[in-house]
């Protein structure tokens, strides 16, 4: 075996293993929080004993076989949720794009940045379904209410991601535009937008994917779509109809994810990539 013990000419002292008090304290804190949550939560963990058999039973009720006669209803409910998500995303983009420019440092005065950022943060804190409850009395119980709630929610996230992307753009192109005597508008159009655009487009797609999932919940308060069909059928324990809905939702959502992945790839890399079956 190789003998490594022959020392080199002049070995400096070996360093001691450093310890970080702050890091250890943080880990201790996080572990304590987790232990406390497990210890204090009102959950009968023994219920987990029946879980596997119960789960199998319900999977059987839902999927063996699903209620194929409900396919049409499940499909139109899912499509309605997708439509809500689309309108919500489009309105969200239209409102958030100018606002995120105004919220970016360097593109608008600080007095404009700060309140906008606060508004984005507040919106992000409130779940879409609560926003829907808030605007319900103004818009009535229609899918449009759901779309508006998703639009408001989208403004919160798209606004934030937008100004982060705009502020993250390399200083180089910005300086170049400024040095040619360009206005702030020229700076946005030629110094910021070209670099940030691919990211911003992919945020839009990502938010659409989120909205497709979030729209399901809005049916619970009467906005229609997946949530409504879910509620109607769970109430009367029509599990085979829920199973049908589950299958349609999974198929449509996966289809949308694949499509949006392909579009994102086209926008970022400049060419279409045929998505593999199980990417």
């Amino acid at each position: 075996m190789t003998e490594l013990k022959t020392q080199p000419r002049l070995a400096p002292a070996r360093p001691k293993k450093p310890t970080s008090m702050l890091r250890n304290a943080l880990w201790l804190f996080v572990s304590l929080v987790i232990v406390a949550a497990f210890w204090s939560v009102k959950i009968k963990w023994s219920a987990l004993g029946d879980f596997p058999t119960q789960l199998l039973k319900y999977i059987g009720l839902m999927l063996v076989p699903p209620d194929w006669s409900k396919f049409g209803e499940a499909f139109s409910a899912t499509i309605l949720s997708v439509q809500m998500a689309w309108i919500g995303t489009v309105l969200g983009i239209v409102v958030s794009l100018p606002l995120s420019f105004l919220a970016s440092r360097g593109l608008a005065p600080r007095v404009v940045n700060a309140p906008l950022r606060l508004i984005f943060a507040v919106i992000r804190a409130v779940p879409e379904v609560v926003i829907a409850i808030l605007i319900l009395s103004v818009t009535g119980l229609t899918p449009f209410t759901g779309a508006l709630a998703l639009a408001v929610g989208s403004v919160g996230t798209l606004g934030k991601w937008g100004y982060e992307a705009f502020e993250g753009v390399d200083a180089g192109p910005k300086e170049a535009v400024r040095s040619t005597g360009g206005s702030t508008l020229a700076l946005i159009r030629w110094g910021v937008w070209p670099s940030a655009a691919p990211d911003v487009f992919s945020f839009w797609l990502y938010r659409f994917e989120i909205n497709v999932r979030a729209s399901a919940i809005l049916g619970l308060i009467g906005a229609g779509g997946i949530g409504k069909m879910l509620q109607d059928n769970v109430q009367f324990r029509n599990w085979d109809a829920v199973g049908m809905l589950l299958i349609v939702v999974i198929a449509v959502t996966m289809g949308i994810d694949q499509l949006s992945g392909a579009v994102r790839n086209r926008l970022i890399h400049g060419y279409w990539r045929i998505p593999k079956a199980a990417r």
Partner: peptide, 22 residues
């Protein structure tokens, strides 16, 4: 797993393990 909305999971699991935090 990612395609199923959280509310669908919740509705099904409420039936499987009962109402509540679990």
């Amino acid at each position: 797993v990612r395609a199923v909305p959280d509310i669908l999971y919740a509705a099904i699991l409420v039936a499987v393990v009962g109402v509540g935090a679990l």
